[in-house]
Structure formats: structure tokens, C-alpha cells
Design a protein around this nucleic acid. Structure first.
Length: 696
DNA sequence: TTTTCAAACCTTTTT
DNA sequence: GGTTTGAAAA
């Protein structure tokens, strides 16, 4: 098990007692250390797996850690609590809901739901949403919660009129959540702390249970997470935190990388181990990363090194515009594929999700299969949100937010007037909107939900979803519409059923409560599908912890990356630089940094200078390629090869695709068409005039 | 109550 | 550039 570990790694694995800080540079075998340490605790020291708690930030990281521990320990690994901070929080709340004043069937609000709630509160209080931006209010409340400030505490600090209003909204918002028997993301961590403060005996039980605690990505912990782990580890003090302040990229979410720098102060006898040997990347890639990060003032001095070869130089390519930028990337990908590379080994990283569109269009043109991680396309669709709101309301009828979402969707003739009278009734009687319903059209709605409620314990999840679709009229509304867009929405609802089916198969028969919990904590539908052998597109933030042979970073321009919002703050610029460090160190073999001379942003043509991060890399490791005019000709040629832009398309026309077969066009944009193919293929986006389709 | 159309708004990054 | 929001008409 411990074979092949270097001296420092071995020390990190075997130093099991007392506080331990592992500063793990990118690619230094951090996950291997964590998983081996867990296995060592269990199989060498005979620690009961249920006494171990391992916490990560993302679902992806938790899943990977669990898989690796299972491969080391077998099925006993299932008894180890490996989870994200948020799902760990939910499990504590679930086990102690009544002590916290919640009912068993609490629901979790996503950030859209909390925004809607805040909008309604602002309106109720008579404030102009133009003067008090709801998003700003939500962010302010969220950061207060992440800093563990109650409305009272916040009111003591408030300096301006805006803050005063925030405090007011904050109070109403918290009351509303409690009366709705629901929690937002921040509550998932705050409530456990509240619980432990008020019930020392409960805390003592958890402290006793989790004798060994491991925290991954410690540099990304915020105040709440920091306090929570400190409370839990107070008794046994066997806490091992792993992190790298150079990779702290979540300050906007309240993360405080000083938590890692202060670890030695918090735990007086803490041992510190530095992992600086990198096993992932070539010498050139590491040197470039070091060149960039050394421009940050606030950091622990360390330098990654490797025994790997020097490798290829990093390529910086400046394209003419954002279209050429994307085309350049596809051309390089095609070259790689020609040399026998796998699509799985290729990733394209960008600063903001909105940047994916150009790249996607180019990939479509070249018929290169890809997947986009972390863009909430699926769960953000109206029909899916409606369906989920129905499920939430069935599960927790006090959830006013979900009720308001679906009470008149599909249309039942229940309008503003009815809602107003229900709201005042619910306010006066301190009951939920659902309970306030007594008669009228809304009574029919109430009966419908009550009827569906009886199904929860008597049928499978998929059957319940089917019943909701049929009984609420959600399906009928779309079928009656007879439009192709409605057809696409129906397809999405079908897709949702395959998600519930998948969930059932994975976990056996599952309850509505477990399903809702997972859906609220897993933002990305891709985690349910396994699309393999495709190019991956994602933000640099989502890429943390991952590695790829070939990495493309696009948008290397001032204003795009570093983002213009960071210009006026040195702290934020340092955070952007850390993000750049994360992006560079994802690459194992080859790295491309790509930017555009001109770029259309907000419909405006901008000419941004090259990103300062490119300039920070010494020419020793960098190969600059600015044959922009040449490339323009080449790109035109390749464009003409596969695209015939003379063909006109109309919605409703039939087309034949070389692999998907016959389909119907459901929508047409300037560059692409969306085509509905028979189940299970579904809706596909295809370039206009692409050689793979022809009209029939 | 629902539909429609023009104006406003927007773009960090995520559990 | 693209979507969401608001006011006015149906």
C-alpha cells in the first residue's frame, strides 16, 4: 500500500496522531496521500472505518476519493464518512432536525429559489428592486452567513442605507425559511454549528465518533467550515488538513486561505509536511506555473520540481478574433487526434461559462464530440424546475416558494388576486400558503397535491414522476401546444425520468427525500450520465483537482483573464493569478494558452492586450505563435470544407443525419439548427450546412 | 388573467 | 449578444 511513496508522502500517511498540516503543491500526489492515509488507519492501525471522516469540497472529489478507498479496502470503506462539506451538513441536520426546530421533511433551496424569495421580500417591504439589487442583497446576506453573522450582528456593523435594508430583508428571509421548513446552502453548514453550540452533548457524540478527521482543499474553507471542523476535532485533535494556498480560488464564496496559514497558530503542536515533488507535469509546465505564481506577494515560499522530462514548450497563440481562437483550438485538437491522442485526454478551460459558446460552435463544425461541465443547462430549464417544484411541494407542503412556482403552472386561472388573499391569510394565521387554501380553484390544486402525496410511499420514484406529469397537466399542456419547442420540452421531461431510473438502479429503491437531497446538492447533470471519449469543456474553477494530458486555456487577454472585475483590487488580482496557476498545473504533457486580438463582448468589439499572466512566463518555456494572417486563410479554407452556408432551413423540415438518422428541425439560429431525433437520441444541436446532414 | 413586445440587464467563478 | 423583466393591450 505504501510502496512507491516518497519520504514526505510516507510521513504524511503515517503521522496519524495529532494535528497535521500537509502543504501539497499541485500534482504532488495529494489524493494518493489522503486515500493511503485512510487505508493505513484502517488496515494497519485497526481503526474502525466509522470513526473516520473525510471532507472534500466537490461531489467529484468525494466520489473519486471514495472509489480509491474502496479499491484499497474493499467494502468496509463504505462505513467511512466521505462527503462534501454540504452533504455532511445535511446528514447532521437530518439526524437532529427536531433539535433545530425543523420537521423531518425539510427541503433545500437552490440559489435561484433564494433569489426569488429575496425579490418577493423586497417587494413586500415596499423597496424598489432597482435601488436595491436583489442579487446584491442575496450576496450580502450569504456572505454574512458565511462569516457567521446573524442579522443582529450585521446591524451593528451596518454603515449605510443599503446595509440597513439588507439587515431588514435578512431577518424576514430567515423567518421565511424556517416557516417554509426549508434551508438554503449556507444554512447547511450554519445549522450544525448552531446545533453543537446549543447541545454540547450532541457535539460530544460526534467528537467521539469522528476520531480521525481529514479535510481536503483546506485553503478553500470559509469561516463556517473552519469553525465546524475545529469543533469536531476539539476532543481527539487528530485532524489532518491538506491544501495549497497557491490554489485558493474561492474567496468570493468566503474562503479564507489564511485558515491554512493560521493552522499552526490554532493547533499549537501541529506538524507540517511540505510536498513539493510533482508527479504530474513536465518541467516546462511547472516552470511556467512557478513563473506566474511567484508574482503573488502573499504566499508560503515553495517551489515545485519534478523528475519528469522538460517536455514541449508551452504554446501561446494569438488569434485574430474569438472565432479564430476557437478554430485554432479545434485545428490543434485534430492534429492531436491524428497523432493518436484520445479525446478524453483533452480539456478546454475558460474563465467564465459564457465563453464556452464560441468553442462549442467550432467543435460542432469540426464534428469533434465534447461535453460541457458545470453549466446548469438542464436543471435550469423551466419544465424541469417546475417538475422539481412539484416534487418538493409534495414532499414538503410548507414550501411556499415551490408552491408559488407551480400553483398556476400549467395555467389554472389562479392569479395575483388569489395569491394576495392567500398570503395575507397565511401571514395572519402563521400557516403556510398550502394550509391557507380553503376553497375555489386553488382547492382543486390542493387536493391534487394531497392525492399525489399518497403515492409517495406506494410507488417508485419514476412512477411518481410519471404521475406528477400526468395528473398536474404538465405533460398535457405541452402536448396540446403542438409546437416543436414543446416537443423538445417533453423530451427533457423524458430525460428526467431516465435520471430517476438511473438513480433507482444505482441505489436500489429510493425515497423521494433522498432523491431531492441529491438533486439539490449535485448541480451538474453530467454526473448522472457517463459520456466517455469526448473533449471536456469547463471553467478553470471546476478543473481544480483534475488533470489532463493536453490542456487548452482560452481567452488569455486582459479583461477576460484576469477578469476586468478584478482590476481595481490587488487581492482579487492575486486570486486570478492563483486561478491561472491552477489552470496551468492541470496539464500533464502539453499546454496551449490562446487569446484573441479582438473579441466581441456584450455585442461590442474590444481589442484587449495580452494577459499579464502570459507575459509573466519566461520565453525560455514559451513558444509564441502569432501567424495571425496566415491562419485567417487557413481557417477560411477549413470552414468551406465542411460547411455549406447556402442551405436554408425552416422549423419543421425533415433532415437526415449520418449517425442519428431522420429528425425534425425544432429551431433555427444564425449558425446552428436544433434537430429532434427519435428517442433515445433526443434533441441535438448541429451546424447549419454541415456535411453530416442533408434535407429529405 | 394572459399575452405580447420593447426595454433593461447582463457576465465571474460554486455548494 | 442573448435573455429576463415590465408595462400595456387583448
Amino acid at each position: 500500500m505504501i510502496e512507491g511513496l516518497n519520504k514526505e508522502q510516507l510521513e504524511a500517511v503515517t503521522t496519524t496522531e495529532g494535528p497535521l498540516l500537509v502543504i501539497a503543491g499541485a500534482g504532488s500526489g495529494k489524493t494518493r496521500v489522503l486515500t493511503t492515509r485512510i487505508a493505513y488507519l484502517v488496515s494497519e492501525l485497526g481503526i474502525d472505518p466509522s470513526n473516520i471522516l473525510a471532507i472534500t469540497f466537490t461531489n467529484k472529489a468525494a466520489k473519486e476519493m471514495q472509489e480509491r478507498v474502496i479499491s484499497l479496502l474493499g467494502s468496509s470503506a463504505y462505513k467511512i464518512q466521505i462527503s462534501t462539506f454540504h452533504s455532511f451538513g445535511v446528514s447532521i441536520i437530518r439526524d437532529n432536525y427536531s433539535l433545530l426546530g425543523y420537521k423531518k421533511n425539510f427541503t433545500i433551496l437552490d440559489s435561484d429559489d433564494s433569489l426569488l424569495t429575496i425579490k418577493r421580500i423586497l417587494k413586500d417591504l415596499g423597496y424598489d428592486p432597482k435601488q436595491y439589487n436583489p442579487k446584491a442583497v442575496r450576496n450580502r446576506i450569504s456572505s454574512a452567513k458565511n462569516a457567521m453573522q446573524s442579522p443582529d450582528a450585521l446591524s451593528r456593523f451596518n454603515a449605510c442605507d443599503f446595509d440597513e435594508k439588507v439587515v431588514e430583508v435578512y431577518r424576514v428571509y430567515q423567518d421565511k425559511l424556517v416557516s417554509n421548513n426549508s434551508l438554503d446552502f449556507d444554512d447547511l453548514l450554519l445549522k450544525p454549528i448552531e446545533l453543537f453550540k446549543q447541545n454540547p452533548d450532541v457535539l460530544a457524540e460526534y467528537q467521539e465518533r469522528f476520531k480521525y478527521i481529514l479535510i481536503d482543499e483546506y485553503q478553500d474553507t470559509n469561516e463556517v467550515q473552519y469553525r465546524l471542523t475545529k469543533m469536531l476535532s476539539q476532543k481527539h485533535k487528530n485532524i489532518c488538513v491538506v491544501g495549497d494556498e497557491s490554489q485558493s480560488i474561492y474567496a468570493f464564496r468566503g474562503a479564507n486561505y489564511r485558515n491554512i496559514l493560521n493552522f499552526e497558530k490554532d493547533y499549537k503542536k501541529a506538524k507540517i509536511i511540505l510536498l513539493e515533488q510533482n508527479y504530474r507535469s513536465t518541467g516546462n509546465i511547472l516552470n511556467a506555473a512557478n513563473d506566474v505564481i511567484k508574482n503573488n506577494k502573499q504566499r508560503k515560499d515553495k517551489k515545485l520540481w519534478t523528475k519528469n522530462g522538460i517536455g514541449d514548450k508551452i504554446i501561446y497563440h494569438k488569434a485574430l478574433n474569438e472565432k479564430d481562437e476557437a478554430l485554432y483550438v479545434t485545428r490543434e485538437i485534430n492534429k492531436l487526434l491524428g497523432d493518436g491522442a484520445n479525446l478524453d485526454d483533452i480539456v478546454i478551460l475558460y474563465r467564465a461559462n459564457a465563453q464556452s459558446r464560441n468553442v462549442e460552435e467550432a467543435l460542432l463544425k469540426e464534428s469533434i464530440p465534447y461535453k460541457v461541465i458545470g453549466s446548469f443547462y438542464f436543471y435550469n430549464r423551466k419544465e424541469i424546475k417546475d417538475l422539481l417544484a412539484y416534487l418538493k411541494l409534495i414532499y414538503n407542503s410548507d414550501d411556499d416558494i415551490s408552491l408559488l412556482r407551480v400553483i398556476n403552472s400549467p395555467k389554472r386561472g389562479i392569479g395575483v388576486k388569489t395569491i394576495e388573499s392567500l398570503t395575507s391569510k397565511s401571514n395572519n394565521g402563521h400557516i403556510s400558503l398550502f394550509e391557507a387554501i380553503e376553497d375555489g380553484k386553488e382547492k382543486q390544486f390542493k387536493d391534487l397535491i394531497l392525492k399525489l402525496k399518497t403515492l409517495v410511499d406506494n410507488c417508485s420514484l419514476t412512477e411518481l414522476v410519471e404521475a406528477v406529469l400526468n395528473e398536474t397537466g404538465l405533460k398535457k399542456e405541452l402536448q396540446d401546444e403542438q409546437s416543436l419547442e414543446a416537443e423538445a420540452r417533453l423530451e427533457n421531461l423524458e430525460e428526467f425520468k431516465s435520471i430517476t431510473k438511473n438513480f433507482e438502479e444505482r441505489n436500489g429503491i429510493v425515497s423521494l427525500s433522498e432523491f431531492l437531497e441529491e438533486i439539490s446538492l449535485v448541480s451538474d447533470v453530467e454526473e448522472h450520465k457517463d459520456e466517455t471519449n469526448v473533449v471536456t469543456l469547463m471553467t478553470m474553477h471546476s478543473a481544480k483537482g483534475l488533470e489532463f494530458k493536453y490542456v487548452f486555456v482560452v481567452g488569455m487577454e486582459e479583461g477576460v483573464f484576469p477578469h476586468s472585475r478584478a482590476f481595481d483590487s490587488n487581492d482579487e488580482l492575486e486570486e486570478e493569478r492563483r486561478l491561472c496557476y491552477v489552470a496551468i498545473t492541470r496539464a500533464k504533457e502539453k499546454l496551449w494558452l490562446v487569446g484573441a486580438k479582438r473579441r466581441v463582448l456584450f455585442g461590442q468589439d474590444n481589442a484587449n492586450p495580452v494577459s499579464r499572466f502570459v507575459k509573466e512566463i519566461s520565453d525560455e518555456y514559451l513558444e509564441k505563435d502569432e501567424e495571425t494572417s496566415l491562419f485567417e486563410n487557413r481557417s477560411k479554407k477549413s470552414y468551406n470544407n465542411s460547411i455549406d452556408d447556402t442551405i436554408e432551413y425552416k422549423v419543421g423540415e425533415k433532415v437526415m443525419h449520418t449517425t442519428f438518422g431522420e429528425g425534425i428541425i425544432v429551431s433555427v439560429t444564425n449558425t446552428v439548427i436544433n434537430v429532434a431525433f427519435p428517442h433515445p437520441i433526443g434533441i441535438k444541436t448541429i451546424m447549419k450546412g454541415h456535411k453530416s446532414i442533408r434535407k429529405v
